[in-house]
Nucleic acid binder design. Structure first.
Length: 497
RNA sequence: GGUCACGUGGCCGAGUGGCUAGGCAGAGGUCUGCAAAACCUCGUACAGCGGUUCGAAUCCGCUCGUGACCUCCA
């Protein structure tokens, strides 16, 4: 049995995973900024790290999963910005930050539920942790690595870099970063361009503001993650995840802040998922090429040929290793939809198969193959969460399962134990770890009764060779989104769109 | 400009030296009143050029191409 290895972005190597506290894992993932709707690109880290969370739990770790909500900062809502921020407006007409935050937080949660992402154990908000952030900033000032200018506080990166390996995570060299300073002369209050804000003074029109030792303002972008992760996971915790684009400057800054405040680097394993691209370009706000999650689910977007079920998106994401880029296209999503449908149906067939009672397999070679397919899944997950390979192996089982049902493979080809192993593998990997759910809505049984009746009438018609009637039933049901299938044994099954 | 990735069959995508994933699409076949599904068979691909090696998609070098980060960004 293999052991879990994780690719650590910090060392750029796969490392054996050993938690700092035996049996426990602290997992922190950068959450959404709730000033707008999440798009497909955002879905990737949340699904990726959901699987990480599920897998660690499966391995028996007690995981504390923390994912923040960034609800503080410089907030604008499309079409409601600038003007709304003017304080003279009547109160109810004004953009109320918490209203905005509430709206998009709810929408985010809605999306996460549909993706079947497990809820984090703690979902701290930045606005709820301003005190912790202020304390941390003060601590950094006291230690001489931050300075205050006109009500804002900046981190002294240059001083930090003299003593610590600033830029290691993102592969940046401090000297080069300092050099680029030249093209931006007159660079306001910072001592060096590389310095970043820990606290920003709030201009009069800024609506989100808190009192601090340095006047009214709001926390800088990076400090919230450091303050909240250390509060809930400790000064050193195991895994920090997020998108690759956050490596610099966000995560680099986190390391610097925490190193000064706590005297040690905060994270043991850094994990970064790659981007989703569209026509080869990163999907992102600045490229104006995003497809929002609501649009994906509804199909309401010029680039979408159809709506896509959340499980199809999830499957599509998990069919690729998380560190590879993943290109969006209707073709790819449609392929995923078909593929997932086939895989899930094989799983359902498997559950209905009558397992043999024999303890020995008639087809030893096949039996061994199936065992290998099943047992390899653990190795694949242990190899830096290779969900793509896990799915490939499950697909290998599909023709075997269908073959048994269809009679191409004899019932006793596999041993009873192997049947059970297949069942366990699907349940454990597809359902529990990859978090997949059926596309079909669970029916309450009434529909099934109606369909049974129709199937029976059709069966009678067929027996009388009244194909006009039997085809009418099938065609009309197809129009309604119900596919009837005549099985080999004379029974009829159906799937509902 | 600097730094770093990547370039796999029609499409999507695994793969860190030999055992040549997987999915979708396509072709042929079996089954079937028809249909759908399912099953069987079929593709020897790794940007180009050199090099290392008994042997490279996989290691090294160069060339070309694409992208990411350097500013808010999952």
């Amino acid at each position: 049995m293999s052991e879990l290895h994780i690719y650590n972005s910090y060392t750029r190597e796969k490392e054996k995973f050993v938690p700092s506290v035996p049996g426990h894992v602290g997992l922190y993932v950068c959450g959404p900024t709730v000033s707008g709707e999440s798009h497909l690109g955002h879905a990737r880290p949340y699904i990726t790290f959901d699987v990480v969370y599920r897998y660690l739990t499966h391995l028996g770790y007690k995981v504390r999963y923390v994912r923040n909500i960034t609800d503080a900062g410089h907030f604008e809502e499309e079409g409601r910005e600038a003007v709304d921020k003017v304080a003279e407006k009547a109160h109810l007409e004004r953009l109320e930050p918490m209203e905005l935050v509430q709206k998009y937080t709810n929408l985010f949660h809605w999306g996460m539920r549909l993706f079947n992402n497990a809820e984090p154990n703690i979902e701290p908000t930045a606005t709820g942790h301003v005190i912790e952030q202020i304390q941390m900033i003060q601590d950094i000032i006291d230690k001489g690595y931050a300075y205050e200018v006109n009500g804002s506080v900046y981190f002294d990166v240059k001083k930090y870099a003299d003593k610590y390996p600033y830029g290691k995570l993102s592969g940046r060299k401090i000297d080069e970063l300092l050099e680029t300073t030249r093209d931006l002369d007159g660079q306001d209050e910072k001592r060096n361009k590389v310095d970043f804000a820990l606290w920003k003074k709030a201009p009069p029109e800024h609506i989100m503001r808190w009192t601090s030792p340095w006047g009214e303002g709001f926390p800088g972008w990076h400090i919230e993650c450091s303050a909240m992760s250390s509060k809930y996971l400790g000064e050193v915790f195991d895994i920090h995840g997020g998108g690759m684009d956050l490596q610099f400057p966000h995560h680099e800054s986190e390391i610097a802040q925490s190193t000064i405040a706590h005297g040690c680097a905060p994270v043991r394993y850094w994990m970064h998922n790659n981007m989703i691209t569209i026509n080869g370009k990163k999907m992102g706000k600045s490229y104006n090429n995003v497809i929002k999650i609501t649009e994906l689910f509804s199909g309401n977007h010029p680039m979408l040929e159809q709506a896509y079920h959340p499980m199809v998106i999830r499957f599509y994401i998990l069919q690729t290793h998380y560190r590879s880029t993943l290109d969006f296209s209707n073709e790819a999503l449609q392929a995923s939809e078909k593929a997932f449908r086939r895989l899930w149906e094989a799983y359902e067939v498997l559950q209905k198969l009558t397992a043999p009672l024999n303890n020995t397999a008639a087809d030893k070679e096949l039996d061994e193959k199936v065992n290998r397919f099943c047992n390899e899944c653990a190795d694949f997950m242990n190899d830096d969460f290779n969900t793509a390979k896990v799915l490939a192996n499950l697909f290998e089982l599909a023709p075997i399962i269908n073959g048994i049902k269809g009679g191409q493979i004899k019932q006793d080809a596999l041993s009873a134990a192997t049947y059970q192993l297949m069942l366990d593998t699907f349940k454990t990997y597809l359902v529990d770890i990859l978090g997949m759910q059926p596309l079909q809505v669970q029916q309450d049984g009434k529909i099934d009764k109606v369909l049974s009746l129709l199937a029976e009438i059709r069966k009678d018609a067929k027996a009388r060779k009244d194909y006009a009637t039997s085809d009418l039933i099938r065609n009309k049901l197809a129009e309604a989104g119900v596919m009837l299938k005549d099985e080999k044994d004379g029974s009829v099954s159906w799937t509902i769109e």
